[in-house]
């Protein structure tokens, strides 16, 4: 006698409660051939999708920024208190980046990343402040915002003086 595959699977318990219904489905006597096949299909399909999704995500994951190597950008005597900030070229994973370097009275040598904290346009030193051409933010010499829309002070980069040389590293704030 042919088995009737079209019949609805026997449902257990309260029909109005889908969760109970679903849980009931897991008790051994309730797992029909039909349910088994459907659950395995979705599980296997899901696992395949998850595997490829994970693979892609792992591959595209942005690299860590924490260990940017120190780079020499000049000598200590280039930067004197009272001089305007100078833009120095740094490496940015194979293409160029830059930092504005200035020696301040209380803070010592400071390096600001060259990208505005609003939307990362390149600002310049104009007159007595940093000004961004994109939406008009300005910052004072300490990196504090003097005119919006920039929401945060300039980002500082690690700067080290060693044997009369100035070395710049990654973003620290």
């Amino acid at each position: 006698m042919a088995k009737d595959h079209s019949a609805a699977p026997p449902s257990g318990g309260d029909e109005k409660n889908p969760l109970a219904d679903w849980l009931e489905g897991w008790t051994p006597q309730e797992v029909t051939r039909r349910k088994f096949m459907s659950v395995s299909m979705w599980t296997i399909g899901g696992l395949i999708a998850l595997a490829y999704g994970g693979l892609g995500l792992k591959f595209l994951w942005p690299p860590s920024q924490s260990n940017v190597p120190l780079e020499e950008v000049g000598t200590s005597d280039e930067f004197k208190i009272g001089d305007p900030p100078v833009l120095k070229v740094t490496d940015n994973q194979g293409s160029e980046g830059g930092a504005w370097i200035v020696r301040l009275e209380n803070e010592g040598l400071v390096a600001y990343d060259m990208h505005c904290t609003h939307l990362e346009c390149p600002f310049t030193w104009v007159g007595n402040q940093f000004a961004c051409p994109c939406h008009g933010s300005t910052f004072d010499i300490h990196g504090q915002v003097t005119h919006p829309p920039a929401p945060r002070p300039l980002r500082r980069r690690l700067v080290v003086e060693k044997d009369g040389k100035v070395l710049v590293g990654g973003i620290i704030s």
């Binding site: 595209l60 994951w61 942005p62 940015n92 994973q93 990208h115 990362e120």
Partner: peptide, 10 residues
Amino acid sequence: GILRGSEFLT
């Protein structure tokens, strides 16, 4: 980071 694949554009 996912879009750029680096800190800035490379």
